[in-house]
Design a protein around this nucleic acid. Structure first.
Lengths: 247, 247
DNA sequence: CGGAAATGTTGATGTGGATCAAACCAATTC
DNA sequence: GAATTGGTTTGATCCACATCAACATTTCCG
């Protein structure tokens, strides 16, 4: 018999699956929860799901049932038009929430595709509703998450509607950098998980334009580009691209 | 003494201000409420506010406190960049909800400006939170409203990111027509409340392009345009502009 | 009412980014 | 390690929409 060893195994599994011990807690969950509340929340997420690169968590038209908190990995969400054109509507990383598009019509309205092997926490929507009726902080947090998604999309509209190619790409890089930073990664060096074409789709540009603009930024000493590896060499310079005259 | 007259006066006021008697009820509120629930809701909205053409319900950076249900009139929401460029992020009409952008950061992130003399119902956000913890249908409804706003913005991203000028304007007109229809107005004739410039801003086009494209649609017999008055003559034709080859 | 300011239309011309095309490069696969 | 594949870069050319400009129409307001 070897009870200590067995106990240890169980501990590790509990540790692994509990929201209360998740390193992304402060992204997904409200802060300042009591132990009691935390316990309840741990029950909310009872499934995790691995999603391989290229696979999707959900697809447009599919029945909506759950939200998905990204535990690890990287996703894009896309809309597809009848004629095949498609539009990337967002890039999503650990701590982000996917699936809120489905609530309004009870079916999803976009595809959520993994750009690398990823893992999501499945949050049954009915359960979330229930708990957020009981827990004020959860309700509040969830509303904030949805609201921020609305604001994020406002920003994209501004970008698509009013900015020139260089501005769009600069804004894109700064936004990525900021999001990596807030997750504890380097602000100045990261790997893109998406192709030039996907960036282009998101920014309303063609992939050639994205590529050319990367090269231009490189020539100007703003960034270093080597395929998917990006180093931000002059973030102030990048910021000043925003709102600069076409010069 | 004249009690009947007095009673009548009170009745009219109650009638006027109650959600339960509002003709837009089915847009703002969940359906299938009990009398008891309806009574509670009537207490939620205890202020209305007139907003004159050109005035705003709230402005960017302002502290967030309430949502606003449009009772009558027409609004635009806009973002302004430091350099003055501004982007219209939406047009909003009776039954629509304004202000959800403010929840996430506790301050508004856009301006909501009346395009004609309008009236909004002020919904104190704290009260909405409270009530939606008590009433499942209200919670559900509110979440749907937010989710639909996210989906609407997805649609705008598709439009801005992947469509050509004619497609954008056709989509815009069809969307307006559909929204007027669902409010009981004519699908085929309506007055634009916004300028060509505002349409252009929303669609990521210059006002001249909007004007030219209107003229083109008119030549093609798709619509009749007379300043702000629009008649849709061939809605199928308009639909077929979407996703058609640049031809 | 009348004159000024907004708003809208239309034409002529310019240009940023799209399109077309050809290499190039890195990662698999056999 | 040659061949294939998916992605990226770069050049040459084109075009949809922007810009500039002149004028028409409507709205505003003293």
């Amino acid at each position: 018999m070897n009870p200590p060893k067995l106990a240890r195994v169980i501990d590790i599994r509990a540790l692994k699956s509990a929201c209360s011990n998740c390193s992304l807690r402060e992204m997904c969950l409200p802060i300042g929860l009591s132990q009691d509340e935390m316990d309840k929340l741990d029950q909310m997420v009872y499934t995790r799901k691995r999603v391989k690169r290229g696979d999707s968590v959900y697809r447009s038209e599919e029945k909506f049932g759950s939200l998905y908190a990204i535990r690890s990995g990287f996703f894009k969400t896309t809309l597809v038009m009848e004629d095949g054109r498609d539009q990337v509507t967002g890039f999503h990383m650990a701590g982000d929430m996917l699936g809120m598009d489905g609530i309004g019509s009870d079916q999803h309205s976009c595809n959520a595709v993994a750009l690398e092997d990823s893992e999501v926490c499945v949050i049954p929507y009915g359960r979330l509703e229930e708990l957020s009726r009981e827990m004020y902080v959860l309700q509040q947090h969830f509303h904030k998450v949805m609201s921020r998604e609305i604001v994020r999309e406002h920003g994209v509209m501004l970008l698509l509607g009013s900015m020139r190619a260089e501005e769009r790409l600069a804004a894109f890089l700064l936004n990525l950098s900021q999001r990596f930073t807030s997750r504890g990664y380097s602000a100045s060096e990261f790997n893109l998980r998406m192709t030039r074409e996907e960036i282009g789709s998101y920014l309303g540009l063609k992939l050639e334009t994205v590529s050319r603009t990367f090269s231009k930024f490189q020539e100007d000493g703003l960034i270093g580009v080597q395929q998917k590896n990006i180093r931000i060499l002059d973030s102030e310079g990048l910021k000043s691209v925003l709102g600069r005259d076409p010069a």
